[in-house]
Write a protein that binds this DNA or RNA. Sequence first.
DNA 1: TCGTGTCAAGATCTT
DNA 2: AAGATCTTGACACGA
Length: 321
Amino acid sequence: MLVRLGYVAMNLNLENCSPSGTITVKTFSKLTSEEGKLHRLRKITRENLNNTLRILRYNKAYNIDVYRLTSKLVPLATHPITKEWDYIGDFMDEYIEIGQFIKDNNYRISAHPDHYTLINSPTDKVFEDSLRDLDYHVKLFEAMGLDDYRYKLVMHIGGVYKNKELSIERFYENFVKLPDRIRKRLILENDDKSYTAKDVLGICKRLKVPMVLDVHHHNCANEGENLEELISDIFDTWQDEYFVPKVHFSSPKSQKEFRSHADDIELEEFCEFLAIAKKLDRDFDVMIEAKNKDKALFNLSNKLKEFENIRWINEGHFEVL
DNA sequence: TCGTGTCAAGATCTT
DNA sequence: AAGATCTTGACACGA
């Protein structure tokens, strides 16, 4: 059973390498000339794209194949205030270079629109804004030349709006309404409050969409069902996919702040999950979601070296025997 | 330069 | 009905 590790957006080992630089609307609005505004947006975007490439090269050096792009690559991209700006056309060369690097190395790259993106909202405006945000993510992937069967966007189901059943129905309705080029990118993840792994599994089966299992979220929100009984079906949602199943993993910050992410990954917990997954013996990828980002990945990976039943291949790959 | 309040966005909980 | 909270990294501003 081969397992690959990945991390999210930021790299803490590289200095001055944020891929998420931005500007506030307030500051942006204070700029007087159109030229100055454009200059500022372009400067930030150029730095973000450059730093993304630096991170990807770093990943290459350390054999890390799995990585999530930040949603903040382009500052204020979906805000009406920048509507006139062609953030794709202005950086076509950079997008192509990043995309080519990803494809040349056969990396598994994803993105995760944030929790304001809610396609099951009963409010039209919220749905429209969400559509614009999804469109932004998809445009970036398209500009990078990343196809829709390998390069996915992970999304949650959304709000409950006092009636879960109706809200799931509205999710189905709005999901099929999405343009093909957006819908085909989407895969779904259980959240830590509203939609449990069991809920999302049902939705994924019906829509024939792969499910990302978030182990920590499952521990936060479940109705007594355990992973052993769900994981086989969850992994089966990846049957026809190019990549193996993907799992998100984080550890609770504390007993009191259980839902918050800890700095690092708790080894024991992680091994418990490996034992559950080992029963299926299917390869899968793990997205490490810890405050210490890449450092948390290395911390975990180094500890796994010590185990007899693990054949450590490199920082980003190991085999469970 | 550093510390801290604030920031595009929605939902949900609290009052 | 209005306001606080969630959650987050980074900005922005004032000391």
